[in-house]
């Protein structure tokens, strides 16, 4: 899980071109959107692309996406729940 979260942070920074952010700057539970990292709805679509390209998980409904993409923690939990143990 820790490893997955680390990897996710690196991937998020790369996908969204968060130039001045380092992985350790992102708190596991911090909100990715709004006041947290300051991401917006286009970023949320890009993060869904990340999930699809890197983890082969397709999120169809943007409303469902919003829940999954709350934080690095919620993303990691979602990925793990979709992968065979």
């Amino acid at each position: 899980m820790e490893e997955l979260k680390q990897k996710l942070k690196v991937q998020i920074i790369e996908a969204l071109n968060l130039q001045d952010t380092r992985p350790e700057d992102i708190d596991d539970n911090a909100a990715l959107f709004g006041d947290g990292l300051g991401l917006d709805s286009i970023d949320s679509l890009e993060l869904m692309v990340l999930l699809e390209r890197q983890y082969q998980i397709k999120v169809e409904d943007p409303r469902e996406g919003r829940k999954i993409l709350q934080s690095v923690q919620s993303m990691a939990e979602f990925i793990q729940s979709k992968q065979p143990a």
């Binding site: 679509l45 890009e46 692309v49 699809e52 397709k58």
Partner: peptide
């Protein structure tokens, strides 16, 4: 390249 799948909207 992605055969119309998983495209970034940006």
């Amino acid at each position: 390249d992605y055969q119309e799948k998983a495209l970034n909207p940006t």
